[in-house]
Design a protein around this nucleic acid. Structure first.
Lengths: 129, 129
DNA sequence: TTCGAAATTCAATGATCGTTGAATTAAACC
DNA sequence: GGTTTAATTCAACGATCATTGAATTTCGAA
């Protein structure tokens, strides 16, 4: 249960962020994450429609290592969220315009609306962050 | 004197734009271009401090093919500019926050201040690394 | 203690990327 | 004409990328 590496936001370079955004699957993940109001409600397995499990792992790691997402381990599951406050502190306004730009792209993979409501049963009181 | 291809801004996908931004040299070019108030005043040869001529050509093409820059041919020279209006129409607010983000990166290649002022015969000496 | 679900890791692939250096085009200037 | 200047093109290279599929880890539950 190695505790998933997250880079210090100060160590993230703009070019790294843009590199992580240069893929339709990852942009689709980002948009889906931004649709989740409840923090840490997005489980990795919710994205199986986007790609195979191993490919998803690859893309999740890319986003995480670029400082864009956070990954919380709980049992055999992983929950994803956008590192909004840290990103806004380091790159003010960037992530919002990126998400807004991606959201308008009709060619990105998307999740049905049902999963947003159906992904429940989270007991998220364990120390956040 | 083939007339330089520029993609229709509607054909540009967000992932393509981010891919073009995923490089320090190209971000440096973008920041430098945003410093030029006079449109079409930035000649390609002004960026020789950033990389070799052939590598510059490569990066210029990347930015151009991603719909980010425009290239005007005049004699043997080429002048670059950011496609601001079109980008803002297609991806509102994006290019400004990208430039602002890049401008704060202390690790990007930069141009001296002398070239901004008309600079005709500038031959900088600031090569390091 | 075995079984199954969630997710990662690993090795392999073909594609694209960033970089170099030499050759090439194209216009300008004597 | 020949030369110079600006910039691109081309072939090569090693590095990274996106993708696949099989093997592995980890934990929860029966």
């Amino acid at each position: 249960m190695k505790p998933v590496f997250h880079p210090d936001i100060e160590d993230v370079a703009p070019a790294d962020v843009f590199g992580a955004l240069a893929d339709p699957i990852r942009l689709g993940i980002l948009v889906a994450l931004s649709d989740v109001n409840e923090v840490d409600k997005a489980r990795c397995s919710h994205f199986t429609a986007f790609a195979s499990p191993s490919l998803l792992s690859y893309h999740f790691a890319k986003l995480r290592e670029a400082g864009i997402t956070r990954m919380r381990v709980e049992g055999t599951s992983r929950y994803l969220s956008i590192r909004r406050e840290e990103l806004n502190q380091r790159f003010p306004g960037l992530i919002d315009s990126v998400i807004e730009t991606a959201r308008r792209d009709p060619n990105l993979p998307r999740l049905g609306s049902e999963w947003l409501a159906g992904a429940e049963q989270a007991q998220g009181q364990t120390s956040s962050r």
